Simulated scan of single mutants.
Amino acid sequence: MTGVPAELRSQVEALKAEVAALHAELPRNNLVVWTAGNVSARVAGADLLVIKPSGVSYDELTADSMVVCDLDGNLVEGTRSPSSDTAAHAYVYKHMPHVGGVVHTHSDYATAWAARREPIPCVLTMIADEFGGDIPIGPFALIGDDSIGRGIVETLTNSRSRAVLMANHGPFTIGSDARDAVKAAVMVEDVARTVHLSRQLGQPVPIAPSDIDRLFDRYQNVYGQGSSK
């Protein structure tokens, strides 16, 4: 391990605290069970990321237990092994420079769509607002190397969506920072549930592409207070 450069120390410590706190949002929003799922954040100005260690209970996570890795998934700082999804997160950061946060969950409804290998159709204004269209399915990939990361990047590179349902696995979300990616994870589960319920009543009606464009543009550029949505 080479360690974190001194000039990045304050930023890394702040990110450790933020990422540890954001992990609490996953069980709070019923997005994970046991130790599944993870949140990571890019260290600005460096090829580094902060992520949780593997197999540690959410109620035991603290800022000090977070680990720092490089964008090849190698441990740079920490006493525990990084999350088993670190290679996927690292690949996303390496190939999508605008991404500042990545989240993975196994939330019930979004994962059910992933098991069917079926995109979530854009039949709600919330989907248009948040994701700019259908929430796509990514390819099947095994855990252990950067195959999942490659699938995420390939699927989202030409999509406005901040979420991808990796086939037979579950949702991954991206954001401008870790908090933004957590919000996307909460929202994708919410719309996955709502569209599922709608299907019990009949066939949901898609929103016209031109209306999706208008909704997405308004939500991304007009809604809220500045950058806070």
Results as ranks from 00 to 15, higher is better:
W113E: 05
A21P: 03
T111M: 13
S161Q: 10
T2V: 13
K183M: 08
L48S: 08
D217P: 01
W34H: 14
A6H: 00
Q225K: 12
E13A: 15
W113R: 10
V102Y: 01
T155W: 12
P139E: 15
G170P: 04
A192W: 05
R9I: 00
L201W: 01
G132K: 14
V92P: 02
R116T: 10
I51Y: 03
A87K: 10
V33M: 10
T86N: 00
H196V: 03
T62N: 07
E25N: 12
M66F: 01
V50A: 02
P139S: 15
V205L: 15
N221F: 07
R150G: 01
I174G: 07
V188A: 07
G100Y: 03
E118G: 13
N158W: 00
R160E: 09
L201T: 02
G133A: 09
H98V: 06
D190C: 08
A167T: 08
V39W: 07
R199G: 08
A44R: 15
K183L: 12
Q220I: 07
T35G: 00
P209L: 11
D70L: 14
G100F: 07
A6P: 00
A44Q: 15
N38Y: 01
S54H: 03
L197T: 04
G151E: 10
Y58W: 03
A87S: 09
L197H: 08
R9S: 13
A88D: 02
H169P: 04
L22M: 15
P97G: 12
S107F: 03
T2H: 08
V195I: 13
G100H: 03
H89Q: 09
G133N: 10
L124V: 09
D72K: 14
H89R: 05
D85K: 04
A46D: 04
P204K: 12
A20S: 15
L75G: 04
Y58I: 05
S161T: 12
R150Y: 00
S176H: 07
D177I: 09
G151W: 02
R117Q: 15
G101T: 03
E13S: 15
Y91A: 06
D129A: 15
T155L: 14
L165G: 02
I135P: 04
D146F: 09
S84C: 02
A17G: 11
V12Q: 04
V188D: 05
E130H: 14
F140Y: 15
T105L: 13
G132C: 12
R193F: 13
L49Q: 02
S83R: 01
G45H: 10
T86M: 01
M1S: 15
L215G: 08
I152D: 00
D190E: 14
A36H: 11
R116K: 14
S40M: 03
H98Y: 11
